[in-house]
């Protein structure tokens, strides 16, 4: 993976990084991907083809869409952590 690819990924991930860091990461990623790429060996195993996954823990976890809490009871606590606010709104820069 080269520097330009790392910079593109960083852009997708919305993280500003320097050229020097991208360079360093590209070398590190080569080593890491070389190691984790070993798993492709396993995928050739016969046993993988007849795997039946045991999904014991899979169950519907959604509650019924009812009995919501009273509107606004958590607003103040949550807004206390907002970097910028205006009244009961979180303030951000102009979008359009």
């Amino acid at each position: 993976m080269n520097k330009a690819e790392v910079l593109k990924l960083a852009k997708l991930a919305r993280i500003e990084i320097s050229d020097a860091e991208a360079e360093e990461l590209s070398t590190e990623f080569e080593a890491i991907l070389g190691y984790v790429g070993e798993i492709k060996q396993v995928s050739k195993l016969e046993s993988l083809k007849d795997k039946n996954s045991e999904d014991y823990a899979l169950k519907n976890v959604l509650r019924a869409d009812e009995n919501a809490h009273d509107s606004g009871i958590h607003t103040e606590k949550i807004l206390e952590n907002a970097p910028a606010r205006e009244g009961d709104y979180i303030k951000v820069k102009k979008i359009l």
């Binding site: 790392v6 990924l9 960083a10 997708l12 990084i17 890491i32 798993i39 396993v42 995928s43 993988l48």
Partner: peptide, 25 residues
């Protein structure tokens, strides 16, 4: 950034998909 790579189109199957399969094995 690495995670963004293994999930990106074209590499998803080779890395993340394979890893999930090996994990269940």
């Amino acid at each position: 950034i690495l995670g963004t790579y293994v999930l990106s189109s074209g590499y998803y199957d080779a890395y993340y998909g394979t890893a999930e399969n090996v994990r269940s094995l």
